[in-house]
Write a protein that binds this DNA or RNA. Structure first.
Lengths: 145, 145
DNA sequence: TTAACCTGTTATCTTATATGTAACATGTTA
DNA sequence: TAACATGTTACATATAAGATAACAGGTTAA
């Protein structure tokens, strides 16, 4: 998945909810889809994952989604784990076990990838939805002034 | 691309070259493909990218590829940049510019993603081909003993 | 010099995935 | 009861990775 922007759209949804004071107060999937320039079904599917991860609260029939936690307690890592595959890189699991290289490269790569993954996740855990919302709100103020 | 193992296969190729003393000394694309359990054409295409990045040296007609640098001077980051798209995450570039959120989310996400990218790349630059080769060779010794 | 091998490149096919879109069961509200 | 919402599923389309084949041209050894 190289051309995916699921994570971006999921953050967009959370930002929309968290910064709803600067938009018309319509939190329907249709209104959020309008902001993303996508469609309500995509939004509802992403929201389903966010809901399963405990990041948002919603009810059938009511356009009344809300964040389950304050924006400074929702990290980029939380969204990543709710939405994306767990691993940034993938080991080729089909290497030739009869070859000394093929038989040992998988564990060597897993070890290397784990180190990169940990650093990336550590950084993601430092970035909160509050940071994103602030950047968006500040950017909007700048436009208005 | 989510299910890609191009990076793993590229590291596999470099490891095969760098640890060729523990395999039969055949460095043809056919032999390397045999270790990956793939096909020679894929190997040659990846090698083409590795060659463009200055990591390996090869000549048409001769099965005599070699590393352009010592294994401890080739990092995982070098391979990543030679093979993969530059960005781990992708910003949705189609957001609604008429919406305060849609108009400002892109730059906020770019900023956040850049921080994660930098940490990941920093970690990748610390992992060298020498580390991978060592793990593979050690793993092989363990099997033989 | 010729047969057998190789590299480097391109093209095609298949498969996996993301997204767009529609549909529908069901809940909510005025 | 009409209008609108969510939550879920199904399907079509677009994109990308990988498998495979083909071929022009270089290399090597008998």
């Amino acid at each position: 998945m190289k051309y995916s922007h699921r994570l971006s759209d999921a953050v967009h949804i959370l930002t929309y909810i968290g910064a709803s004071e600067i938009v018309e107060d319509d939190l329907s999937s249709r209104a959020i889809a309008g902001s993303i320039n996508s469609n309500p079904s995509l939004v509802r599917r992403l929201m389903s994952s966010l809901k399963n991860a405990g990041l948002i609260t919603s009810e059938p029939g009511r356009a009344a989604v809300s964040l389950s936690k304050p924006t400074n307690e929702i990290t980029l890592l939380d969204v990543y784990k709710a939405i994306e595959e767990p691993d940034l890189f993938h080991v080729d699991e089909e290497t030739n076990q009869q070859c000394p290289i093929g038989a040992n490269i998988q564990s060597a790569l897993h070890k290397a990838y784990n180190e990169v993954q940990q650093q990336a996740e550590s950084e993601m855990s430092k970035i909160t939805l509050a940071d994103i919302v602030k950047d968006v709100v500040d950017g909007n103020k700048k436009t208005l002034s």
